[in-house]
Nucleic acid binder design. Structure first.
Length: 282
DNA sequence: ACCCAGGGCCACT
DNA sequence: AGTGGCCATGGG
């Protein structure tokens, strides 16, 4: 079906924005997206329109929320301080980026993995993890696609028999999915969630401050990963993750100090524009 | 071979 | 509260 919006959407920029790691451009302007155990193709039509291969009902119940269609991103760009030259340019460059409403578990695990990896390495690591303990969804573009594993699948990571380097990997012909020293972090997080199945639901209803503190309680989750998880996995648009790239922006463009609270409650959106723009130009 | 990556933990002050 | 060494792995 074809979708027309009031607001701008740019699929390529979203795919390159570092918030999601399972989008693949399979042809010009055409993206294969795997989320919520489904595989769909999104194709850019105009700057405010795209197509998706699903019916109206599925779009309304799943993908409209996922793509955060109800948030006015052009309005956020319009609110950027014109006196801030860098941010004005970043906002223009990033027009069309949206903050996806991604699955909280997938986001948490993925950003624990992300530490000390570049984006291509994160992508290949996540794909290995999906292949090792996700569900087979079908063949697409000549590739076997697997869902991001649920808690049951992830629990294979701490299989008692195999002591972590699990039989699931052997079956998939993989080693430890390149998780490296993050393996025990993931295992600990997964076991906490299995012991408390309503924990995600609980986290979701906390306010920003309380959510942040709770996220910091997971092993392997520090300030940066907690910020990314809150922003991308719980759609808390006011979180402002500071990674090596944003640190460079702040140091080189703002003399070491940038007050993101100026853009509350959308500081996280501003952060995405900075991140995207700076990476495009350096 | 080399450098670094959407960092966090732990042991020090 | 702030700092520095260390961590496992792979992409460029």
């Amino acid at each position: 079906m074809r979708v027309k919006l009031e607001d701008t959407i740019d699929l390529k920029k979203i795919a390159d924005s570092g918030q999601c790691f399972r989008w693949k451009e399979v042809a010009d302007s055409r993206f294969r997206v795997c989320a919520f155990g489904r595989v769909r193709y999104l194709t850019q039509e105009g700057e405010k329109s795209f197509t998706i291969d699903c019916d109206q009902e599925e779009y309304q119940t799943i993908w409209k929320d996922y793509l955060d269609i109800d948030t006015d991103y052009d309005g956020i760009i319009a609110s950027i301080d014109r006196a801030d030259d860098f941010l004005t340019r970043a906002g223009q460059a990033g027009r069309g980026i949206r903050i996806l409403r991604q699955d909280p578990l997938e986001t948490l695990i993925t950003f624990i993995i992300s530490q000390r990896k570049n984006i291509p390495a994160i992508k290949s690591c996540v794909e290995k993890l999906c292949h090792a303990c996700g569900s087979f969804l079908g063949n697409y573009d000549g590739e076997e696609i697997y869902s991001f594993p649920d808690l049951m699948g992830l629990s294979a990571l701490s299989c008692q028999k195999c002591g972590g380097d699990c039989c699931t990997y052997k079956r998939a012909g993989l080693d430890s999915c390149s998780l490296g020293y993050r393996m025990p972090y993931i295992q600990d997080t997964v076991s906490r969630l299995i012991m408390n199945p309503s924990l995600i639901e609980y986290l979701d209803q906390l306010d920003d401050k309380a959510l942040y503190e709770e996220l910091l309680g997971f092993k392997g989750v520090g300030k940066k990963v907690a910020n990314c998880t809150a922003l991308f996995g719980f759609h808390r648009l006011d979180f402002f993750p500071i990674d090596v790239w944003i640190k460079r922006v702040i140091d080189q463009e703002y003399g070491g100090r940038f007050d993101h609270t100026l853009y509350s409650p959308f500081a996280g959106v501003i952060q995405q524009y900075m991140f995207y723009y700076y990476r495009q130009t350096h």
